Amino acid sequence: MVLEKVKHILAEQFDVEEDNITADTNIADDLGADSLDVVDLLMSLEDEFDVEIPDEEIENLKTVGDVVNYLEEHM
């Protein structure tokens, strides 16, 4: 369920098909996210999942799977 929501948010934000996003998708390399995109993404995720993602965690969230694991552990 978390993966599906994250994929939906990413698909909307980066204008890609949800089917092209997997847990192994690298947010920067595969989706072309720059630092501003990542901040926007994290704000969307925080709103959607009602969690706070500290700035120091951002560098550890490289793939969609990393994001999903973080959200599942902190919800």
Rank of each mutant, 00 (worst) to 15 (best):
T25R: 01
D50P: 00
V51K: 02
M43N: 14
M75W: 07
L71H: 01
D40R: 04
D30W: 02
L10H: 09
K5W: 03
E57W: 00
M1R: 08
E17C: 04
V68T: 04
K7I: 04
E59C: 03
E73R: 03
M43V: 15
V68W: 09
S35V: 02
S35F: 07
G65H: 07
V39P: 06
V68N: 10
L45R: 01
T25F: 02
D29K: 11
D40Q: 13
D19H: 11
T25Q: 05
T63W: 06
E73I: 06
L61H: 01
D66G: 11
D37S: 09
L45W: 04
E48F: 07
L31G: 03
D34Y: 02
N60V: 05
A33V: 11
E59H: 07
L71K: 00
A23Q: 11
E12L: 06
E56Y: 11
E48W: 02
E46Q: 15
H8D: 14
N26S: 04
D47F: 00
V6D: 11
V67A: 01
A33M: 03
K7M: 07
V2I: 14
N20Y: 10
E18W: 09
T25P: 04
I21F: 11
V67H: 05
I27K: 02
G65N: 10
M43Y: 14
G65Q: 05
G65P: 01
V2C: 13
V38A: 06
L31S: 08
K5D: 12
P54V: 07
T22M: 02
S35P: 00
S35C: 04
L10P: 05
F49M: 14
V2F: 14
E18K: 14
L36T: 13
F14H: 05
D50E: 15
A33F: 05
L31T: 07
K5N: 10
V51I: 15
D34R: 00
I21K: 01
A28N: 09
H74T: 12
D40G: 11
D66V: 13
T25G: 10
K62N: 14
I9T: 08
L36H: 02
G32F: 03
E48G: 07
D37K: 00
D50W: 00
E52G: 09
E17Q: 10
G32K: 00
D24G: 12
E18H: 05
D34S: 04
P54L: 08
N26L: 08
E52R: 13
Q13F: 09
E73L: 02
L42P: 03
F14E: 02
D50I: 01
E18N: 08
V16D: 11
H8G: 07
V16R: 11
E73H: 02
V16I: 15
E46N: 13
V2S: 13
M1I: 08
D40K: 09
G32V: 06
E4R: 06
K62Q: 15
A23I: 08
D29T: 14
E48S: 11
M43P: 09
L71G: 04
K62V: 13
G65T: 06
H8K: 14
N20R: 10
E12V: 06
I9P: 04
I53L: 12
D19P: 10
A11Y: 05
E18Q: 15
D50R: 11
D30T: 13
